[in-house]
């Protein structure tokens, strides 16, 4: 009752505004899934109507989302059981554990006991691999990626940008590897000597026309998935690309790299990601796989990299990249 005015404002209004701001950021970032949820899920639609009528507030919505989080973690533990590797692992483990005493005590057969031990080893391996599978289903990952590419395409189309993007290492972006799409096509990309400002529209050279928009690409967060940043040698970059594309993301079966002084050729075997070649984002920044390759190459070499061409064949993708300012 005797609370001061600013404390009441802080408790009642500012907390609501914080939650509302967080929700609006989610809606702005993922408009397509957000509207799909309103359309398909009755609970979401009803909550939205109650909110508009003033029957509930944002704090109640946040509380319910917290309940949803608990439900989700409950489903995750059941989700582990639905994981094929975990199911296989558990089955093999139980079979092996049952076979060992049976064959040892009853059958008195060493080979069958050894078979039981091998089943236990295999079961433990499968269980462990099941737990390291990505938690986000591939369909959700695909949805999020398509949504972000569509947003970027809309932005580029609105600005009328058709120039090819240049991938910059983190040393030149002041943060993580990013791509800059010049507003004007410049045959010679200007040399960047110091980190660029962390803004959407940045100046990338001395000429006033050397301006571009700096965007985060699928490859921007890739380096965080590696234990160590790869060096500039061909072997290290090839190993990093294989670890990411084959081991971590499961986007290809193998990757080969041919590194020259100012050119690089990457051959990705059996690529699994389909892309929309008509999309403005893909025309400017390349396909998601090419984007990941270019980001990693730029980060490893510490130099800007541009995608010269991409050729998609039935079982492989050939990506030609140009290393800018390679002699510097």
């Amino acid at each position: 009752m005797n609370q001061s005015y600013d404390v009441i404002i802080e408790e009642k209004i500012m907390s609501e505004m914080d939650i509302a701001r967080a929700l609006s950021r989610i809606f702005a970032r993922f408009p397509h899934p957000a509207f799909k949820m309103l359309e398909l899920d009755d609970r979401v639609w009803r909550a939205w109507c109650y909110l508009l009528r003033g029957e509930i507030n944002y704090a109640i919505i946040k509380g319910n989302l917290g309940g949803l989080k608990m439900k989700r973690s409950g489903m995750t533990s059941r989700g582990i059981m639905r994981n094929q590797y975990s199911q296989l692992g558990l089955g093999l483990l139980l079979a092996g554990a049952a076979l060992i005493p049976t064959s040892c005590l009853l059958l008195r057969s060493t080979p069958i006991t050894a078979l039981g031990i091998s089943l236990v080893i295999l079961g433990a391996t499968c269980l462990v691999l099941g737990k390291t599978r990505p938690k986000i289903p591939p369909e959700v990952s695909s949805l999020l990626m398509e949504t972000s590419l569509e947003n970027l395409s809309s932005l580029l189309e609105e600005l009328g940008l058709k120039s090819k993007g240049v991938y910059l290492p983190s040393s030149l972006t002041g943060g993580k590897p990013r791509a800059i799409i010049p507003l004007h096509n410049n045959p010679r990309f200007p040399e960047i000597n110091e980190p660029l400002a962390q803004r959407l529209i940045v100046s990338c050279g001395r000429d006033p026309e050397d301006v571009g928009i700096m965007v985060t690409t699928p490859g921007s967060n890739i380096v965080n998935m590696l234990e160590t940043k790869p060096g500039a040698s061909s072997d290290e970059i090839a190993a990093a690309l294989t670890t990411i594309l084959v081991g971590t993301l499961d986007l290809a079966t193998s990757v080969k790299l041919s590194l020259g002084d100012n050119k690089a050729t990457v051959n990705v075997s059996h690529p699994r990601l389909e892309e929309n070649r008509i999309s403005w984002a893909v025309q400017s920044l390349g396909s998601p796989i090419a984007s990941i390759v270019a980001s990693l190459l730029a980060e490893a070499l510490g130099k800007p990299v541009a995608i010269e061409s991409e050729e998609s064949k039935p079982r492989e993708k050939l990506i030609e990249l140009e290393i800018l300012h390679a002699q510097d």
Partner: peptide, 24 residues
């Protein structure tokens, strides 16, 4: 995950072949 599949198949094949050879 294809790489996981290859890992399990190769390990299972090796263990089984070893067991059979040593039993023989």
């Amino acid at each position: 995950m294809k790489i996981y599949d290859y890992y399990i198949v190769i390990l299972a094949s090796l263990l089984l072949i070893t067991t059979v050879i040593m039993a023989v």
